[in-house]
Design a protein around this nucleic acid. Structure first.
Length: 190
DNA sequence: TGCCGGATCCTG
DNA sequence: AGGATCCGGCAA
């Protein structure tokens, strides 16, 4: 069933881990597009120097600081879109970046990587601020699954963030073929 | 108002 | 290894 707002209104690392294995569902454009979330990153709040919210409340981060259970979508390098889901109570400035999907149905193209994920799911900046309790874009718990084996690793592309760059806030399903990058070292399981 | 650089991806 | 290509954030 569709995840309710209280799922998102919790500790960001917990939400990130629990999102692994959930289904991201996109409707409103022909056949339903559905993929299994296999890789995420947690951006835990304004004190997290890798997070856009560390700049404070601005036009761009307004949605991140808004209520949980909404989409935060931004444009990166002028080309690609990235999809996040806002977590924790309003005013906290935290979100989980969805980095890769295992295609399940209705998906054409690559879903390994946040930009490719958005392209395959038909998500752009018009989705910024969208309420995930609606029918256009939401996350569903497929139920009936065992607890997945999760690997924790440093986040990708945040080397500018000092010690926060090293924090193991990237999570993915161990041995899943759809994860965007393979680690050389399998550190930080958990 | 101008400039710098990025939570990426593709090609060479 | 480097280019694409837009816009947010900050300095002036």
């Amino acid at each position: 069933m569709k995840l309710a707002r209280d799922f998102y209104d919790r500790d960001t690392e917990t939400v990130a881990r629990e999102l692994l294995g959930m289904h991201l569902v996109r409707r409103g454009t022909g056949a339903e597009r559905r993929g299994r979330i296999v890789e995420v990153e947690a951006y835990v709040g304004a004190h997290d120097l890798a997070s856009h919210s560390s700049k404070g409340v601005t036009a761009r981060t307004r949605v991140m600081y808004g209520p949980p259970g909404h989409a935060y979508v931004y444009l990166i390098y002028g080309i690609h879109h990235c999809l996040n889901v806002v977590t924790e109570p309003e005013g906290h400035g935290a979100a989980v970046l969805l980095r890769a999907l295992e295609p399940l149905s209705g998906i054409a193209g690559n879903t390994r990587g946040p930009g490719l994920l958005c392209r395959a799911m038909g998500i752009d900046r018009s989705f910024d601020g969208l309420d995930l309790s609606g029918d256009l874009l939401f996350i569903e718990d497929p139920g009936g699954r065992d607890a997945p084996e999760i690997v924790a690793a440093p986040r990708i592309g945040v080397d500018y963030a000092g010690e926060w760059a090293q924090r193991p806030l990237r999570f993915y399903l161990r041995d899943n073929a759809w994860v965007s990058r393979r680690d050389r070292s399998n550190r930080g399981r958990g």
